[in-house]
Nucleic acid binder design. Structure first.
Lengths: 231, 231
DNA sequence: GTCTATAGTGTGATAGAC
DNA sequence: GTCTATCACACTATAGAC
C-alpha cells in the first residue's frame, strides 16, 4: 500500500497545483460576478486578473459557461446552507416562514449570483450536464435538494391536516417557490413591483400559501413583521 | 388652411416612407425575437433581413436596446389585450382566475417575448426612458396599466370583504403577479419545477391568493381545470 | 438628407510554437 | 502547461459617396 515512488509524488504535486489554479480562477470569477454580474465576466478580464493568458483558462474550464456552472453549484450550496440553519424549527409553518424569508434575503443580498443561478437563459449555466461521481450519475439539478427541504415542510403540514385536501405537498412547494422567485426576480429587474417592499410581499405570500388551514391558530407573525403594512 | 405646396407634400411623403421603414424594421425584429430570442437579434442579421446596411438601422433606432424597448411596448399591449378580454367577468375572483391563466398562457406561448419583457437585465429594455407626448411625460412603466387591472379586482374583493383584513389590495395584486411571474420564469428557464405542470401551479396559486375568503362559496373550477390533480 | 463602407474595439474560442 | 497569434463575430460611430 505505501508504494509511492517519486513519480507518483510528482504527478500528485501536479494535480495539487492544477487544482489550486482552478480554485483561484473560481475565486476571482466569483468576486467579479458578485460585483459586476456574470455578463461582465469576460475571459480576457478574468485572465488578466489571475495573471495568465486567456487560453490558460480553457485548460481548467472548457468554456465560459462551464465557469458559470461551477459558480451556480457554489451558489446553490450557499442557499442550501441558509435553509439548513432553520431545519431545527419544529413547526412546519414557522419553518417555511423562516426559509421563505431566507430565500428572498439571499436573492436580494446577492442579486448577481441569484441572477446567475435562476434567471439566466438556461444555456449559460443550468444544465450542469451529467456529473459522474463514483461511477454513478448524479442529479443534474443542483436546486433539487433545496426544494426538497420546502417540500418536506409541506408534507408535514399535510400529515397534520393543515393543508387543503386537493393540494399536493410537492405542488405546494413548487408553487411557493415560484412565488418567492417571482418576488425576487421582479425586484431585481426593477421591471415592476415598485410599490410594495419585498418583506411585505413575502409575508403576504407565506400567508397565502399555508395560512388558510392555519388561520384559526395563533400566528407567529408578531415578531418581525415590518411596519409597512399595506402599500 | 389648405395651403399645402408641393414641398410640404414631398416632406410628408418622406415621413411616410421613414415611418414605413421603421415599421418594417420592427416587424422583422419582432419575428426574429419571437423565434430565436432577443439575444440572437444582431444588427447585422436584422439589416440583412431588411436589405439595408447595419448603419441604416441607427437612423431609425438609436441603439439595439431602443428596438428592444419598442418590442417591449408591443408585448405589453398584447398582454393587456389578453387581459381586457376578461374584464367583462363580473365576479372579481373569477376574473382574477381568468386573467391569471391568460398571463401564464401568454408567457408560455411567447417565451422569448415574455423573456424580453420581464426577464431581461433591466438595462436592455425596461427603462423606456421618458416618452414625451403632447408635452406631457408619460408613464415609464408599460406594465403598470396591466397590473392595475389585477389590482382593481382585488379592490373589489376587499370591498366585498372577501380579503383578509391585513392584506392591502395593491400588495395582493403585486404578490399574485409575482407568483404568476415566478411560475412562468422558472418554467422558461427549465431551471426547476420539473414535476408540476404549469396549469396546476396556476390553479394552486390562484386558490392560495384569494380562495381563503372564497372557500365557503361554490367554486367555479369545474369547467377547465386540468385532470392532472397533484403531481 | 440618406445611406454605404469601413474603422475601431470588444467578445469567446482555438491552433500551434515552445 | 502556457503563451502568442488569430479567427469569426458582435457592436458603435463616422467619413464621404450619392
Amino acid at each position: 500500500m505505501p508504494r509511492i515512488g517519486p513519480q507518483e509524488r510528482r504527478t500528485e504535486q501536479r494535480r495539487e497545483q492544477r487544482q489550486a489554479l482552478r480554485e483561484r480562477i473560481l475565486e476571482v470569477s466569483r468576486e467579479i460576478v458578485r460585483r459586476e454580474g456574470f455578463a461582465s465576466l469576460s475571459m480576457r478580464k478574468l485572465a488578466e486578473a489571475i495573471d495568465y493568458s486567456p487560453a490558460a483558462l480553457y485548460l481548467h474550464f472548457k468554456s465560459r459557461g462551464d465557469i458559470a456552472r461551477a459558480l451556480c453549484v457554489e451558489g446553490h450550496a450557499s442557499l442550501r446552507d441558509a435553509f439548513l440553519a432553520h431545519t431545527s424549527i419544529a413547526d412546519p409553518a414557522a419553518r417555511l416562514n423562516a426559509m421563505g424569508r431566507a430565500y428572498v434575503e439571499f436573492g436580494l443580498a446577492e442579486p448577481e449570483t441569484y441572477r446567475l443561478m435562476f434567471m439566466e437563459p438556461a444555456e449559460s449555466a443550468q444544465p450542469a450536464a451529467e456529473v459522474h461521481d463514483n461511477g454513478k450519475a448524479q442529479a443534474a439539478e443542483p436546486g433539487a435538494a433545496t426544494l426538497s427541504l420546502i417540500a418536506d415542510a409541506f408534507v408535514e403540514l399535510r400529515a397534520a391536516d393543515r393543508l387543503p385536501a386537493h393540494a399536493g405537498p410537492l405542488a405546494c412547494a413548487e408553487g411557493l417557490w415560484a412565488n418567492l422567485h417571482g418576488i425576487v426576480a421582479l425586484k431585481l429587474n426593477r421591471a415592476a413591483l415598485p410599490e410594495t417592499p419585498a418583506a411585505t410581499l413575502v409575508e403576504l405570500s407565506l400567508d397565502a400559501w399555508f395560512a388558510p388551514a392555519n388561520r384559526t391558530e395563533p400566528r407567529f407573525n408578531a415578531s418581525n413583521r415590518p411596519d409597512t403594512s399595506t402599500r
